[in-house]
Design a protein around this nucleic acid. Structure first.
Lengths: 255, 255
DNA sequence: ATCTTCATTCGACAACATCGAACGCACGAA
DNA sequence: TTCGTGCGTTCGATGTTGTCGAATGAAGAT
């Protein structure tokens, strides 16, 4: 397994540790031997790292298998709770879901990818928790595009360099030219649409959340194409999104 | 700062890494110099670890400060999603909240502490998300006691050795004798009560969740003492909890 | 502009992460 | 029951590499 850092600047032993964490996730838990084989390191090395992690709750031993521990959930909740956008935006998401009956999401970005940090299900039969905390490409996501549109051009190029513009459906934007054109339009109109660019049959509209001139994240409404037409998005839903945005940006200011 | 592992078995460099993570949380983000001073290591050492973490999304740099990254939230959601009790119990918690109008919680334990892994607010004005993912003592928590009651005696002693029985209110159980008496009663009656043992004015009732003879966690209902009397707990609420438990244990079996 | 205060880089050295072999424990087969 | 296999764990030797401190850059502040 390849486990060297890209730049070579970091600490090698940490790299092994993170590879262990990653592998434990991929395998949904594993034993020392299996991990050592997979990462091509000595069993004793694996055992040492696991012992350290165990003392800090990042790993638990169940029988002879090691699993990632609840410390991750603890830290995860902390990290989310620290985000101003989360604290100021939760209530708005709740209200939006009620008003529209569709899925409402709060989205941020880190390292060129978008993440769903809070959401409500609407009248859809989807389990919010399977989406919460997962990474998404920014170029085929309404919230992601709304964020991208407010990043400096240089950063956008970096992101495309790193993650590419993979086609998720036939509607996905796959060229830089098309992307920059779209982002220009998004800046002009103040919102981003997603017409089945990520998942077939799913439409969405996203609106940027700014604070002190910086993009903080985005708010989005998503739903089945038949119910969430472009007309509805750009009409009633957009109005509700704009109201919610104002509320959030006000919250961000007065705290 | 003390940073050596208790047993001395683990890896020292990992210990530094975890100390960094912990400190970044305590300080809500910090710079290299501040971290190096606090942990009493060279700046270059801190910088090396931060670089490694950054490459894996566990840390982000905002200006000159480093902050814990969303990778924690990602992993945290994964860890919770892996728990059978979570997947099988969410719906029951939703239903319980609706039926009782009180807070409903799903609780697990790891390393002698209880953690809230899913909850609903009831008609209370409390923000669920500030409690979600936090650790709690088991001896002064209805769910915690329900779990403790089904652990082997030896393990209970270990837990008390490690975490003690700190008094949170005047009602908290603070001696081993009283604790074991209480646990015996809990085993007999099949549920655990919390009469302001953790927070003044807050009552709760917890019920163990078993699967394949092993304790998996607990379900609990909590609310203000004036509304959640002992009579109500042991009457209507207990019935609803028992029904929910059956549902969850059935879900755990057929998946 | 100058000074200060950071983050970052670099080379040298000894600490310690890594390895592999040996141990001991648990489980299943005979 | 006994043996054998497969696993997690321990241990000492080795040289890789984590750590240090000084030097360098890059920003802010005065």
């Amino acid at each position: 397994m390849e486990r060297i850092s890209k730049t070579g600047k970091g600490i090698k032993s940490d790299e092994t540790l993170f590879a262990l964490i990653e592998t434990l996730r991929e395998l949904d838990g594993a034993g020392v031997t299996e991990l050592a084989d997979r990462l091509d390191v000595a069993k004793s090395t694996v055992h040492g790292h696991l012992t350290s992690m165990r003392e800090h709750g990042f790993v638990v031993k169940r029988g002879r298998e090691y699993h990632l521990g609840l410390a991750f959930f603890d830290y995860g909740q902390y990290v989310r709770g620290q985000m101003g956008i989360f604290r100021s935006g939760m209530q708005a998401v709740d209200e939006l879901e009620k008003a529209t009956g569709e899925m409402a999401w709060l989205i941020t970005h880190e390292n060129g990818k978008a993440m769903y940090i809070y959401g409500r299900g609407g009248q859809n039969d989807i389990d919010i928790n399977t989406i919460l905390g997962t990474w998404a490409y920014m170029h085929c996501n309404s919230g992601g595009k709304a964020i991208l549109a407010h990043l400096p051009d240089e950063e956008i190029h970096q992101i495309v360099d790193e993650h590419g513009l993979p086609a998720r459906t036939e509607n996905t934007i796959t060229t830089r030219e098309a992307l920059f054109e779209e982002l220009e339009q998004i800046r002009e109109q103040g919102y981003a649409l997603n017409r089945s660019e990520d998942l077939k049959g799913v439409h969405a509209i996203g609106i940027p959340l700014m604070f002190e001139g910086e993009i903080q994240g985005a708010l989005s409404i998503a739903g089945p194409a038949h119910r969430l037409s472009q007309e509805r998005c750009e009409g009633e839903v957009l109005d509700q999104l704009r109201a919610a945005t104002d509320e959030i940006e006000l919250n961000l200011a007065y705290r």
